[in-house]
Amino acid sequence: MEKVTLLIMLFDLLLGLGLLWLAWQLLESRNLFKAVVLFVAFGLLMALAWVRLDAPDVALAEAAIGAGLTGALLMAALAKLPSRDKSEPLADEKGHWLLRLALLLVAAGLGYVVHSLPESAPGLSAEIANNLASSGVNNPVTAVLLNFRGYDTLLELMVLMLALLGVWSLGIERSTREEPVGPVLTTLVQFLTPLLILVAAYLLWAGADAPGGAFQAGAVLAAAMVLLLLAGWPLQGLLTGVALRLMLVAGPATFVALAGLTLLDAQLLAYPPQHAGKLILLLEVAATLSIAVTLAALFLGYRPRTNKEPG
C-alpha cells in the first residue's frame, strides 16, 4: 500500500502545483482569449481537487458552473468586445507595485489566519448528522443548503437575479450576424440536448440522497440552452415577456413564499419535519428552472424583445 499512497501524494502535489501555475498564467496573460481558456482549465483541475478533498457536491458545481458556464459567459463577453480592446494592456502599469504590495499583505494575513487555526475544529458535522432525520433528505449537503441554512440559498438566488438585472439594464439587443450552422453542430446539439435534460433531471432527483441538487441541475440545463442558442435555435424568441419572467422568479418567489409562511408559523424557513422532503423537492424544482433560465439569459447578454415591442 505504501507505493500507492506515495503515488497519490505525488498526484496531489502535481494537482496543487498545476492549479497555482494555471492561476499565475491566467492572471499574467495579456491575451484575453488565452486567459479565458486557462480559466476553464483551472476550473476543471479545481473540480478534480474538490474530488480529492472528498467534496463531490462542490466538484460538480465547480465543473458545471465554474468551468463550463462561466467559461461560456466569458467567451460570450469576449466576443462582444470590439477587437481593439482585446490587445490593449489590461491595467496601467504604474499602479502595479501598489497592487502587488496589497496582495502580498492579504496573502500574509491569510497565511497567518490559516496558521493560527486550531488543530482540530469540532465543526458542525455531528450536529448535522444528529438532525438529518428531521431535514427531509438523506444528503447532508442538501440538508444544509435547503433546510438548515436555507436562507443562504435564498440569497444566492437573489444574487443571481440581481446579476441578470444588471446585464439587462446594460444590454441593448444588437443585430447579430446570422451565420449558417453546419450539420455537425446541429447533429451534436440534437444528440446532447435530450441527454443534458435527462442528466439535469437525474441530478435534481438525486440531490435528496447523493451529490447533486438545484445548482448542478440548473447549470446542466442551462448548458443545454446555451448549446441550443449556439446552434441557432431562436430560444430568445420563444421565451419572452411574462413567460420568461415567471420562469426567472419561480425559484426566488417559491423560496420567499415559503419563508413567509414558515415565519408566520414558527421560524424563518423551519419546515415541519413531516413535510420537509416534499417542500425541499418543490424548492429544488423551482430553483433549478430559475437557475437554468437565468444562466442562459446571462449568456444571451441582453433582454429578449417581446413581440409587442418594436424591433
Partner: peptide, 16 residues
C-alpha cells in the same frame, strides 16, 4: 461515447 461525440464535433468546428 460522449468524449467521442464532443471531440469529433469540436475538432470539426475549430477546423472549419
Amino acid at each position: 461515447g460522449l468524449v467521442l461525440l464532443a471531440g469529433a464535433g469540436v475538432a470539426h468546428l475549430i477546423a472549419s
